[in-house]
């Protein structure tokens, strides 16, 4: 008991302090500057709160920043941005943590789980952006070996791409594990003398391309556009056998390039049904790759996403008006 007593003696001041603080909070709870100053702002929002998932790539950030800026400043919504990867963002539809995903790349499995089966999310139409996935080389290689951009010539250059990681074969560097990749099947089915090496993250992939361009070292890797990095280092796409409908149905037998993705928005069912003006804004949001790249480049150049969004919105008042109508 003595020990408990000692402990009590020691924690007593802390507890007393906490109690006093609590009393203080309760006593003047209504008077806090935090609440008072905000009261004016929140009372006139018909829109409420929008939870926007923030996926990592800058193209996404551009979409989300512009959407958030408009929702906040034109509609008076409270926008909460949440940094999440794609998989987790979709889980947010089920839990109510996420209302909007502003740029979605296919994800047939997630579409099936959350849109078709659980019916907690809905496809909210295209963003107007087109996505390309493929194999890319740094620009200096395209200049030096012009025929490298034809996939048929890849085996000729295999030794050039060999690294200590690829065991004597040429290396195809893959990036973010979140993306679906057919690369292992492609290597096999196109009889390429290559090995797929997993860098493990988008950051690793980008850094590898950056270094390759800087030091003029060879590199072949999985990449995609729109992507802000392409405005820093304009990677060149290697053309594999063109995509035809159905050529990638069987994942093990794929022998064609990736399709062009029509990027779309996904919103939670609850959000769509809420009748919030922000939901209407999400539905109407649409722009071009050039628009997205201009915002993304500003962000990558050091501007805050909000400032970059403001700059674009100020310059494109008409487009914004059609979204809001």
């Amino acid at each position: 008991m003595k020990k408990a007593g000692l402990l009590l003696k020691r924690t007593l001041p802390a507890m007393a302090g906490a109690a006093a603080a609590a009393l203080l909070l309760a006593g003047c709870g209504s008077a806090s500057v935090n609440q008072v100053n905000a009261a004016g702002g929140t009372s006139e929002t018909p829109c409420g709160t929008v939870n926007v998932a923030m996926n990592a790539w800058v193209g996404y950030t551009a979409n989300a920043a512009v959407y958030s800026y408009v929702a906040k400043n034109k509609l008076g919504c409270t926008v909460v941005q949440k940094d999440l990867n794609e998989q987790i963002s979709w889980q947010g539809f089920a839990s109510g943590e996420v209302d909007v995903v502003m740029e979605n790349w296919g994800h047939a499995d997630l579409v099936k789980q959350y849109i078709t089966d659980q019916k907690v999310a809905v496809d909210d139409g295209p963003t107007g952006n087109e996505g390309h996935i493929g194999w890319y080389v740094p620009p200096w290689m395209a200049e030096k070996y012009p025929d490298i951009l034809d996939g048929k010539n890849l085996n000729k250059y295999a030794s050039l791409f060999a690294t200590s990681e690829s065991g004597g074969k040429g290396q195809v560097l893959d990036g973010d594990p979140a993306f679906v990749t057919n690369d292992e099947a492609l290597v096999k089915n196109l009889n390429l003398d290559y090995k797929v090496v997993f860098s493990g993250s988008e950051a690793a992939l980008i850094q590898s391309f950056r270094t390759a361009q800087q030091n003029k070292t060879p590199l072949l890797g999985y990449f995609y556009e729109p992507q802000w990095f392409l405005s820093e280092v304009p990677l060149k796409k290697v053309n594999l056998p063109a995509w035809t409908p159905g050529c990638d149905t069987d994942a093990e037998k794929v022998a064609c390039d990736y399709p062009t993705y029509k990027l779309n928005k996904v919103v939670s069912k609850k959000f769509q049904d809420s009748g919030s003006p922000a939901a209407k804004l999400a539905k109407n949001f649409q722009w071009t790759n050039a628009d997205q790249n201009s915002v993304a480049t500003d962000i990558q150049g050091g501007m805050t996403p909000e400032a970059a969004a403001k700059k674009w919105v100020d310059a494109h008042q008409d487009a914004v008006k059609t979204w809001l109508s």
């Binding site: 998989q87 499995d109 997993f198």
Partner: peptide
């Protein structure tokens, strides 16, 4: 996340791809 491959990559990929 920086190229180790192996089990670690499987774990990361499992985390992000259903």
């Amino acid at each position: 996340l920086v190229g180790a491959g192996g089990l670690g990559y499987d774990v990361v990929a499992g985390f992000v791809q259903s």
